[in-house]
Amino acid sequence: MIQANNISLNYGGVSALKDISFQVERGEIFGLIGPDGAGKTTLFRILTTLLLADSGTAIVDGLDVVRDYKVIRTRVGYMPGRFSLYQDLTVEENLSFFATVFGTTIEENYHLIKDIYQQIEPFKNRRAGKLSGGMKQKLALSCALIHKPAVLFLDEPTTGVDPVSRKEFWEMLKRLKLQGITILVSTPYMDEASLCDRIAFIQKGKILTIDPPEKIIADFPYKVFAVEADNNYKILKQLRQSESVRSVFSFGDSLHVVFKDVSKIEKEQINAELKEIAPTIEDCFMALANN
């Protein structure tokens, strides 16, 4: 459903995207994961026909993003990272505006948005600019879906959304997937990354790996140890000083430590109990961002 071939783009001498290639299958949830400034939003803009690449080609739903841009725009839904609905229109006006522009009605595709739109329907007469962060995201998704797109592009859709709403949001993405909608999503939340069918790690405009999350975890080359102590920050600073430590990061209530050489751990330097644990996607991300 999405096919990117050797896409490159330079912004004033800086290479924003370098030779990006990947494919997304129909009904797949494909995650773009990478640090801020990695090029994720630029890639979204090229695939949604809003920006031209310097070189390379891209096909979305069988159509060329340059030649067939007008048709593509009727077949995709795009939720940009920055809120871009009409602040002065009400919730309902925004939704009906997008439905009308795409030649449909709210009633026709209501089933697609029902789960999420019901939550904001009590405020349908409120101006979009007056909604809270979580409600804005729900409205933006409803507007991106109202014309029943074949492909959905979601650029950090859950930023500013609380954990309960995030969970609901992802349950909904799974239902959309079951209806055959293809989803390309970026997120800074690693628990969401692990819910994707496949993810691409992107850094400095280059894709480093593309794999299912389970495979990325299985391929993680290091052993990860957890340390739990009363004063994690103090231990963190101590471990940073240790010669034998490759990396140490806070992970919730514990620290995750990777050693340079597991056979040469200097136990006396580490005043805390080490427990080997299975790595998570976030461990993989941190190792990547640290390199």
Binding site: P35, G81, T159, G160, P188, E282, F285, A289
Partner: peptide, 17 residues
């Protein structure tokens, strides 16, 4: 107030330090 909204995991950790 949500100082790390939308920030990647590496940058969030640096911020918490």
């Amino acid at each position: 107030d949500e100082p790390t909204g939308g920030v990647d995991p590496a940058a969030r950790r640096q911020f918490w330090e």
